[in-house]
Design a protein around this nucleic acid. Structure first.
Length: 420
RNA sequence: GGAGCGGUGGCUGAGUGGUCGAAAGCGGCAGUUUGCUAAACUGUUGUACUAGGUAACUGGUACCGAGGGUUCGAAUCCCUCCUGCUCCGCCA
């Protein structure tokens, strides 16, 4: 969440409103200032009355100890009224607090000044393209046609077992995925990321901490009985490792990575990418997460993006780096670069990684702080993360790049890339 | 799943209705002593919100697993939930 102290000044409020407008968010942001003010006023009232109660209660204790029964009884009667009044006031306070939290919880992160203006994904800005768009001397096929033709992926049985957007990898793809994820983890380990194995089911407070809850709750699988959610990305448990903790500044930066399945309901994407491995309910992904000092976050975010790019470079895939425009930015992110890989068979660019700087937005929600070594004060640190990268889409890309004129797959070529 | 016992500050651990944000010890920080280190001694040491102040800081409120309740007053009493440990059962 954003620093709600911003709402108190004209200047801060304008920053919030400008950012919201750039996002194309028409939510009731103007209410914020009024609610924030009402909240402060109510808190002041409650605290003043609570102070009186505390002072008089202390006095009652003294009177009793001194055996002054008459004075005790008199004051006690008076304080009953104060207690009643306080009770009513406290109810008002929690009502205001609830309204305030409701708005604040649903308020997106402030956009970085460098985020380009734009309405939707069509106005994202391509920063650079790495590699050439490959040319084939034959008619290229999308990955799912190749996979079906050679029985590499069993889409029907995936549907039989679990429904649409589920799949079964047969032997060669299953093994390729195992090789690829291992390759990605090793590559990141060399760049300084520490691997973790983490829970795939998380509490609501974790989903809140990284910003999935409460606004986007419908997009995730939740186990109602146990009040746990299947993670949509390793970002959730990985970031929450340090929830509610204060980290010494000297221990930063912390780089973490994890391989996990990711589960997404894909609610609202009916009819989109219905074939293939591009949009599925479950896929493996290697995630990169960084905890950094605020002053380092831009540098560290660019470095993390480069770490994700390295995977695509090593595998010889053509991709471009895209700066998401204001209207296409995610709720929690302050600035995001997407990596889009060229898909020869689909004949389009496909998002395979999304690298974001959240600044202190997630840190505030998850209460992840650092102790400033010079001032000794606790401050919110910055969190950064990105996919490094999504395995399912990576497999799809490799199949399309290494298809042969005969309609098969050049396995040795893939193998060579992995061994390079 | 059953039975029993617990959850207190960075840690250990006291505290069963009033002056308890909370004893004591450890750790941390500052200082004194010291040729240096160590030891000893002295002081200091939580978080969030809130009001004032440029700030250092000062005042207030809240927090003793979480949420409710009783009371003028709750770490302490009552209820619900969560969670840890030990034993038993079950499963891998």
């Amino acid at each position: 969440m954003i620093d709600f102290q911003l709402l108190k000044s004209e200047e801060g409020l304008n920053r919030v409103l400008t950012s919201l407008k750039r996002r194309g968010d028409e939510s009731s942001s103007t209410d914020l200032k009024t609610i924030a003010e009402k909240r402060s006023a109510t808190i002041r009232e409650v605290e003043a009355l609570a102070n009186e109660r505390n002072v008089q209660s202390k006095k009652l204790g003294e009177l009793k100890a001194q055996g002054k029964q008459a004075e005790f009884d008199e004051l006690r009667e008076k304080m009953k009224e104060v207690a009643d009044r306080l009770k009513v006031l406290k109810e008002q306070e929690s009502e205001v607090e609830e309204k305030f939290r409701y708005l604040l919880d649903r308020l997106p992160n402030l956009l970085d000044d460098k985020v380009p203006d734009g309405k939707d994904e069509t106005q994202n800005v391509v920063l650079r393209t790495v590699g050439e768009v490959p040319k084939f001397p034959f008619a290229v096929k999308p990955h799912f046609e190749i996979a079906e033709a050679h029985d590499l992926v069993d889409f029907e049985r995936g549907v039989k077992i679990s429904g649409a957007r589920f799949y079964v990898y047969n032997e060669q793809i299953a093994k390729l995925e195992r090789r690829l994820t291992n390759f990605m983890l090793s590559t990141h380990e060399r760049a300084g990321y520490k691997e973790r194995t983490i829970p795939l089911l998380v509490k609501d407070e974790c989903m809140y901490g990284t910003g999935q809850f409460p606004k986007f709750a419908d997009e995730y699988y939740r186990m109602e009985k146990d009040a746990l959610s299947l993670i949509p990305t390793a970002e959730v448990p990985l970031t929450n490792i340090y929830a509610d903790e204060i980290i010494n500044e000297e221990q930063l930066p912390i780089y973490l990575t994890a391989l996990t399945p990711c589960f997404r309901r894909e609610a609202g994407s009916a009819g989109k990418d219905t074939r293939g491995l591009v949009r599925v309910h479950q896929f493996y992904k290697v995630e990169l997460v960084k905890f950094v000092k605020p002053e380092d976050s831009e540098k560290e975010w660019l470095a993390l993006t480069a770490d994700a790019e390295r995977i695509l470079q090593k595998l010889g895939l053509t991709y471009r780096v895209v700066s998401l425009c204001s209207g296409d930015m995610g709720f929690t992110s302050s600035i995001t670069y997407d990596l889009e890989v060229w898909m020869p068979g689909l004949n389009r660019w496909l998002e395979i990684s999304s690298c974001s700087n959240f600044k202190d937005f997630q840190a505030r929600r998850a209460k992840i702080r650092m102790k400033n070594a010079t001032t000794g004060k606790n401050e919110y640190l910055h969190t950064i993360n990105g996919s490094g990268v999504a395995a399912g889409r990576l497999i799809a890309a490799l199949l399309e790049y290494h298809q042969t004129a005969e309609g098969g797959i050049d396995w040795p070529a893939i193998e060579a890339k992995l061994n390079a």
